[in-house]
Write a protein that binds this DNA or RNA. Structure first.
Lengths: 167, 167
DNA sequence: CACTTTGTTCATTTTTGTTTGAACAAAAAA
DNA sequence: TTTTTTGTTCAAACAAAAATGAACAAAGTG
């Protein structure tokens, strides 16, 4: 039987709704799933840390989504566990320093691709050397070299980016 | 009846295959569809410009994909029409200057989101001012201000990025 | 003009990626 | 110990995005 309180918290109020939408849009640009934006957004605008089932109740997402989303956000360094008081469940709060967020994104999402890209480039260079037709070999080598230059530029720019955003 | 030539060009050779895969991976990081990577990749490693149905035949993608992909790549400034000779079909060649590619991506993919983000932020600031609870209003205002700072950092960094990559 | 070639559009299909929720594990409470 | 609470995992359902291909348009050819 249901007594007084309906057990679940209220829906999102207008401010919360708008902030959540803002982040949903933001993370889409970054190629991350919408639930990530919802969770981070709500944490970002909440005055106190929230637990997994606060998120489930307020955002009306499944426990699975909330759990996986929090895991990813922790991985990105975008969310940390708050000192919880009495209660035995874990509460989460957002990391709000841009530097940290950018750093996490670069580390988790960009670097791995960069690294695998560099490996592929090495292999490409090898294949290119083995081309019989001299003209094609030369042309291909130039293009591959250009790719290599791009990757180097990228590698060089990342830390600068991080520094510029971390003021 | 089929005479001599099977009409379609050969499959991708190992080098082409690897380069295409390299770009397929690359564009996925950027949140662009795989066909974009395939098309650009093949153009990138081809010694001469290719027509729409060269792309269809070599990559085994549909005419629709090729057409839409080329349109997007043109929009990004990543591909241009080559001076075609006798033939009445259009031939395409890749733009290979990193500066141009980065510029196009920023213009087409980043800026629009930035702009809509800024609009949303303005609205958010308004909603925040109307919060009754003084403490929550203050907290929210601070967070929104932080978002604003992020956006400004982003806006400031983009041109620098462009410049750094355009050496 | 009718016919062919080249390319675009867009409704439908296919693929990919995300979310769900039931089953499970871990740990505290009773 | 059994029960309850909290959180995770992962196969299946679902939703979103991309690719297909048939119908169409545009423009050249004979």
């Amino acid at each position: 039987m249901d007594i007084l309180l309906d057990g679940n918290q209220q829906e999102l109020d207008p401010l919360e709704r708008q902030v959540v939408d803002f982040f949903v849009d933001g993370v889409r640009v970054l190629g991350l799933p919408r639930s990530i934006g919802e969770i981070y957004g709500l944490l970002f605008i909440s005055q106190s840390p929230l637990s997994l089932d606060d998120l489930v109740n307020r955002l009306r997402i499944s426990k699975g989504s909330a759990s996986q989303g929090l895991r990813m956000l922790k991985g990105l360094g975008a969310v940390r566990e708050a000192q919880n008081g009495v209660d035995r469940r874990t509460y989460y709060e957002p990391a709000t320093e841009l530097k940290r967020l950018v750093g996490g994104f670069i580390r988790e999402q960009i670097r791995p691709h960069m690294d695998s890209g560099k490996i592929k480039l090495t292999r490409l260079a090898k294949v290119t050397e083995e081309i019989d037709d001299a003209e094609r070999r030369k042309f291909s080598a130039e293009r591959i070299q250009r790719l290599d230059k791009w990757m180097r530029s990228g590698s060089k720019v990342l830390p600068i980016l991080q520094k510029l955003l971390g003021q």
